[in-house]
Structures are given as C-alpha cells and as structure tokens.
C-alpha cells in the first residue's frame, strides 16, 4: 500500500494542466526508477508494471497514458537486452541517463510539431478547431508569429473545453470565434482547413479524440476540406477498432461533471477512421494516416 501511495503522490506531482497524461506517466515511471530500491531487473519491471496498473486505476485512463507507458516499458526492456553483461547498477545508470533523454525528446515534441505544422497554415486562412488541445494551441501560437488567420473553435460540450481554448487563443492575440457544436455544417463552407488534436492515434491511422471529431471530419470530407491532426508520436497505440463500438469502454466513459447527462450512455470520445484524415503532424514528421501502422510495425 505504501508503494501505491507513493505512485499516486509522484503522479500528482508530475501532472498538471499543461502536461499530457502520457508524459506525466512516463515521468512518474522514471522517477520511480530513480528513487526505487529494486536490486534486480525483474524486481524493477514488476514494480513498474504495478505502478502502471495503479496509475490506470487512479486516473481516467486515457489512450495516451496507455501508449506512453507501453512505449516506456519497451524502452526499458530494450536496455535490458543491450546490457546483458553489465551489472544491474550500471544498467540503472544507463536507464536513467537514456530515460532522461527520452523524456526530453518527448517534452520537445510539441514544439517540433508546431514548427512542422505551422507551415501548412497560410496567410488569411480560416481554421476550424475542435475542443481544447495543447498541441493545436502550440501550433497556432507558432503560426501566429508571422501570419494572420482566423480560428473557429467549437464550444465542445459537455465540458465546454472549446471555450477555454478560445480564451487562450484570445490571450495570444489570435482572432477567434466560438461556435456551437451544432454549427459545424454551417461554418464548413467558410473555412479552409480543420485542425484537431488527438487523444490517441491508432494502428489503422485513425484517431480517437473528443466526441464530435468524427462528425467534423465527415462534414469536412463532404465539403472537400483538408483535416489535419496534430499529435505526438507517444500517442500511437496498437488498437485497431473497426467501428465505434470496438473502442474499449474504459477509454470511452470518463467521469462527468454535468449531471444531466447519463454517463453510461454518452461516450466522451469517438473514433475517426483514417479515410477522413488528410495528414498527421507528428514529431517524427508529417505522415499520411497509412504511415502510422508502418511506424508501429517497425517497433515490433
């Protein structure tokens, strides 16, 4: 039980409104390696596995957390395979050293995406953004340095995260208009491109994101507007859903603050199949949806 408390405490320390769940989880695991008292490899791995389980239980397990943890565990076993002849202590130092680099890379991925993606935003374009996404915000901030454009943000019920997004964009002097979720069809003819973030990027090349993303992508397809996704590569996950029902329930229903909505009946995320997406802006480059499974296969 002591361990569980410890995990929760560290996770709390590492989490924050500006930090993606995936990054927080990876940082927590690294901290656990650093402060832990494990003396053998298998002890360490067991401890980390338990920690992953605890983290899943005490949060609204998001896809990015699962994929981030998976990537990190793979990273650990890679080091184990490499350092077979070395002592555990040496391995641990190596692990911490590389782990820190890993976290640094993951941390900087948002900026890389912003740099890559912002060249796709042209002067005077009109952009539709759904819900709140930290990567999208970063990208728009980067683009606003040398370009003028207008952003439409959906209100994004039920948590109204789009309104927060609009506030933040305003703070950065970006022209913004908050619209109703139901007004997507209405604005589609005026906009040039759709830009969304993602909670998870799946092996099919499709994405899981805040509920409503699928409807926007469908409307965009009907109007021949490009749909761009900005997402870090640690969000790549091995899930391969064929329809909405295939999404694991644990990802679908989070705790809701609004009581009027029956949370067992109303999912908070949806799955957008790859044929509705144009390009993915990731820290490992600008990818077509097909490229995602390629990257995941390369890992195996």
């Amino acid at each position: 039980m002591l361990f569980e408390e410890n995990v929760r405490r560290v996770l709390n320390e590492k989490s924050g409104p500006e930090i993606s769940e995936g990054i927080a989880a990876v940082r927590t695991l690294l901290e656990l390696i650093n402060s832990g008292d494990a003396t053998t490899f298998s002890e360490l791995v067991t401890k980390l596995r338990t920690a992953v389980k605890i983290m899943r239980e005490c949060t609204n397990e998001s896809i990015s957390m699962t994929s981030g943890c998976e990537l990190f565990m793979r990273f650990i076993s890679n080091i184990r395979d490499e350092g077979r002849d070395e002592s555990f202590e040496q391995c641990k130092t190596l692990m911490l050293e590389r782990g820190n680099k890993f976290v640094k890379k993951v941390d900087s991925s948002r900026l890389r995406i912003a740099k890559l993606g912002s060249q796709h935003i042209k002067e005077n374009s009109k952009i539709l953004v759904h819900s709140r996404s930290r990567v999208v915000l970063e990208l728009l901030k980067e683009a606003s340095k040398d370009k003028q454009f207008k952003v439409f943000v959906t209100e994004s019920r039920p948590d109204g995260s789009g309104r927060d997004m609009a506030q933040e964009l305003k703070k950065h002097k970006i022209e913004v208009e908050c619209i109703l979720d139901a007004a997507i069809g209405y604005v589609m003819e005026t906009i040039d491109l759709v830009l969304v973030g993602a909670e998870g990027v799946l092996a099919s090349g499709g994405i899981v994101n805040k509920i409503g993303t699928f409807s926007i992508a469908m409307a965009a397809k009907a109007f021949n507007r490009p749909v761009y996704v900005a997402a870090e590569s640690f969000k790549f996950s091995n899930l391969y859903p064929l329809n909405q029902k295939d999404l694991p329930n644990k990802h679908k229903y989070e705790s809701l603050t609004e009581e009027t909505i029956d949370r067992k009946k109303h999912p908070l995320i949806d799955y957008t199949p790859p044929e509705y997406l144009t390009l993915l802006f990731t820290d490992i480059g600008i990818l077509t949806p097909t490229a995602v499974s390629d990257e995941l296969i390369k890992l195996a």
Binding site: N78, K105, S233, I284, K298, L299
Partner: peptide, 13 residues
C-alpha cells in the same frame, strides 16, 4: 536518418 518511433525509443542523440 529518418525520425521514427524506434529512434525515440533508443533515445539516440
């Protein structure tokens, strides 16, 4: 020379 998930994993400089 290409960036990839694999490379992220190896944490190469």
């Amino acid at each position: 020379t290409q960036e990839s998930l694999q490379k992220l994993l190896l944490a190469d400089d």
